[in-house]
Design a protein around this nucleic acid. Sequence first.
DNA 1: GGCATCTCAATGAT
DNA 2: CATCATTGAGATGC
Length: 645
Amino acid sequence: MEGSFGGYTDKTRVLDIKPLRTLKPVFPSGNQAPPFVCAPPLGPFPPGFTPFYPFSSSQHTPDLNQSQHQPSLVTPLRTFRSPPPPDNTASNGDAVEGSTVKRKIQRKRTPIAQNPNFSSGISAAEKENGDRKLVMSVLTRFDALRRRLSQLEDAKESVTGIIKRPDLKAGSTCMSRGVRTNTKKRTGPVPGLEIGDVFFFRFEMCLIGLHSPSMAGIDYLVVKGGGGEAEEEPIATSIVSSGYYDNDEGNPDVLVYTGQGGNADKDKQSSDQKLERGNLALEKSLQKNSPVRVIRGLKEASQSAKIYIYDGLYDVKESWVEKGKSGHNTFKYKLVRAPGQAPAFASWTEIQKWKKGLPSREGMILTDLTSGVESIGVSLVNVVDAENGPAYFTYSTTVTSFKLTQQPSYGCECGGACKPGNLNCHCIRKNGGDFPYSGNGVLVSRRGMVHECSPACLCPGCKNKVTQMGVKLKLEVFKTVNRGWGLRSWDPIRAGSFICIYAGEAIDKSQMQPAMANDDYTFDTTRVYTPFKWNYEPGLADEDGSEEMSEEPELPLPLVISAKNVGNVARFMNHSCSPNVFWQPVSYENNGQLFLQVAFFAISHIPPMTELTYDYGVTRTSGAQSLCGKKKCFCGSEFCRGSFG
DNA sequence: GGCATCTCAATGAT
DNA sequence: CATCATTGAGATGC
């Protein structure tokens, strides 16, 4: 029933191609030699992400019968701690569909209704000690659920007074269902965590064992004293610096941290901080020279989002007591970053300076290679060799549209923003009743096609036009060591964020000229792409009765885009077998034309200055094993296939 | 539109 | 096993 929504399946509707617009020529800007710089770039940030297939064993929520005869490498766990509440769904006498009010009250008492068929697929050992793959998998599963809960929340009629915290709901669900790792507390490094990793929610750090308290800023471990049983003392494992107070303008490797407690309570009474709990733990860490993980909480001026950067290990060097604003005693701890660690927070502060232009980015060849076509300039940088830019091309943010020969399209007539579930809205209906993006423009789920609202739609301020609004990130084209030019971002990128489309000259593959087939600047949607799971698991979110949705791209025609002569930043994105970006078909109609886009979104949170890569896929003709016509892959991933193309 | 204020949260230690 | 201490992030208000 949903299959008929698209309406593009009839290929005869689409015929000729319209000429390009918004063209602007681009460099070479001149013959000035690029600055010769021997120093390595500020990075590298941690290498890319490993692929993960957390749900590879089953496509659907397993039922009990299946799990019997489906051998799994991982012993399925009983992930529920408590039996399902007696009077929740089981009581047949009561109405199955209680009012929403009733449901809310019930959910308060029993936060997570357990689905006995659900298994996190994470073994007891893996829960205690994780690795990179697990960490990434847990983060992806959490965020997929969070986005889905957010989407469901957005769909509800707004009820005043109800606090929406999809992050807490998703986090709590993952916690109770065993979608977590590194539960064994420890000082020092955490397996699978890399310095420079970024987070957008406190709960993410709880789930992967970086910092377990959901609110408190100091995490600590209680160690038994050597001999006596009663002898227990805390030692700090990690702290989250909120970044609100003194960020010590000068040295990014030094942090002065305020102890906990003493804050105003309900009656607005402040008090002296006491040397207990976290404060005592930090004191002990100082005495014992025990390293403390530091997570820097940052608030960017440009983006309103707060982020957290894992900045590695610090040592507590000093502690003292100070009178706080209210005149009460507060503890202060001076922490100094252990030497020899890859820069993370320091890079971030450096990037903030580049944004202000003081000092300017080293190795900068052009501040904006798009010559103003993109609203945010794309810098061109080389700190590797003497090459002063890629070959000439014309910068354009658009892709050729296709002319619709039948059924001139009409925009929706929503008046305000399009509402999820409103099947009177053409655009929502095409998306199967969903609003594809959450309020801040993050893609909720991968799907065969995302249908955006068009300029003709009567929905002012509608958020369903994400890819039409252009690039919102500060991007940089840079020379890589062994893979030519590449693309990366100065800004941290949240999972699901739109990055850019693949702009260029689009054609139907049946009209493709042979020369395009193996061109470095061709995007061919008909290639074979490694499938992967990104969306939420319906079995994890209890009250959600939705079906598993296909994540595979579905296009109305075999689209091929050439960016050889005309293109945007996407043409610089390199291949990786462990990519951090995926492509998603997006379309909208306007003035009898079909705009068919290949849009790129972040798979996971991406730290600043990490190269952006996607899976180039494999041509259908070149067999899986054949290396004929393929390019050697330098992605460096642990899971590298060795070649691509 | 951005900033300040208000509110309700989940967890682990006790 | 219940209570407590902790502070984020969304909503609301200005």
